[in-house]
Every structure is written in C-alpha cells, then in structure tokens.
Amino acid sequence: MKKRAVITSKYIVLAIIAAIFLLPILYMVMNSFMPTKEITEAYTSSADHYASFHLIPDQFSLEQYYQAFLRRPQFLKLFWNSVLITVPIVLIQCLISIFAAFAFTKFEFPLRDVLFFIFIILLILPSWVTMVPNYMMIQKMGLLDTIWSLILPSAFTAFGVCLLRQSMRYVPDETIEAARMEGCGVFRILFQIVLPQVKGGVASLMILTFIDSWNMVEQVIIYITDKDKYPLSVALSEYAGTDTGIIFACGVIFMIPALLIFLYHSKEFKNARV
C-alpha cells in the first residue's frame, strides 16, 4: 500500500513537471488558432491594463495560418533561411564529429590524450568567449553578412566529438579487429561497423545540433546585418513587435521541423549510450 502511494505521488509530481514544461507549447498552439483581433485585445497592455493569460480561443480561427502561409511571403523566406543555415551545420558537424571521435577512440597516436584534454577545455568554454576571435576571422575572410559566417564557426564543436567518443567507446575493439582481418578499410569499418552501433549517439548529436542551430540568435545578430538573411529564430522576435496577430502560428510552424526530427530519432535518442 505504501509502495503504491509512493508511486502515485511520484506520478503526480512528474505530471505537474510535465504540465509546466508543456504549458508554453500548449499555450502557443492554442493561441495560434485565435483570430488576430482576439490576440490583439488579449495582449495589448497599457498603464492601467495588463496583458491577460488567454489559453482557450473565444473563436476558433485559421486566420494566423492563412496570414503566415498566404499573405506573408517574407515569413516563409525566413523559414528557408533557417533551413539553409541549419542543414549544413548539422551535416558538417556530424561528419566532423564522427571522424574525430572515431580517431580519438579507435586510433593510437602521439599526444592523443593531450589533444582530447584540449577538446574538453574547449567544451567547457562558453561559446561567447570565442565569438570575438571568430568575428575577426570571419571579417578577414570577407564572409560577414553571409550564411557562411554562421555555418563555419558552428561546423565544429568539441561537444559533438566528446558525445560520439563516449558512444564509440562502447563499440568493442574486437569487432573492428575482426573487420580489419576480413580486409575492411578504415572508412568501411567506420561506416559499416561502427556507425550502425552508435546510431543513438549520432541521432542525439543531430537533434541537439539541429535545435542549437535552429534556435540560433546571438551569432546571427553579430554576423548578419541584412535582415532579409535573418533566420526565423531572430525574425520571430521582430514579428512579435509588429505582427502579434500571427506570431503564434509562426511559432508553431517554426517548431514543427524540430518536432519531426525528434520523433524520427526518438527511439535512438532514448537508447543512446553516451
């Protein structure tokens, strides 16, 4: 009986925590079905009137989606800016991390542990610390105000290498040795022997990198001045000031790619050994 009560109370606490985490998403989705007028009325604040908490729409409407998809072409263009920035970062970062992690895990070479220690230090460093040198380098390369100024600094992270190194440590050396004896080359060993065993780690890295790049804000503000090149993550805040009426629908559309990627990789993500 006591055990049952403990389990019940655990579930209650977990449900409350889940509700707290889910509420903003639910709030955004519900508000995306409000007509513009209702949004404007609910979120207009003044000295004697505060914006109200308004979860359930008085009137169900697809006006925000109509506006976002059909009447605001600029919004969708910004969506593709996000895609153009995020996809290369995810692919390049995963590829570099896979090669580097494989080398650190399965190869013996001088100063390997020292180098990895430096990687760990880089992992500890906040990204803002490297922002100024990065800016100077990008300026010298003439890449300011281009999407490459966002892609190149994000193409490598120590985090990805560390994450995959931990995953690859679980791959038995015997399987690699056996493959080598069968005549497999390094790349075949990596892509056909090791990677299938670290799918969870790669999926985790992909999801985390995707979310990190998809929500990129600071780098954009520093490296990009042309607002037409802004990704949606930054542009959304601009919309929030001028187009309150469609901001929730924009938020939902912005959330969908990350959600789909997570759902696709959720199994590997849960089973990942890191």
Partner: peptide
Amino acid sequence: IIKISIAFILIVALMTYFSGQIDNYL
C-alpha cells in the same frame, strides 16, 4: 514521419514559391 516531413517541406516550398503571387493577387 518521413511522409509528414516531406509533405511539410513540400507545402512550405510551394507556399514560399506561390505566396508572393497569391498575396499580390489578394
């Protein structure tokens, strides 16, 4: 999920291509 993702990408791509013209028309 793959089908939904492809559908989503296609819808957004088509809307991006045509929304300017639709907006101008409306």
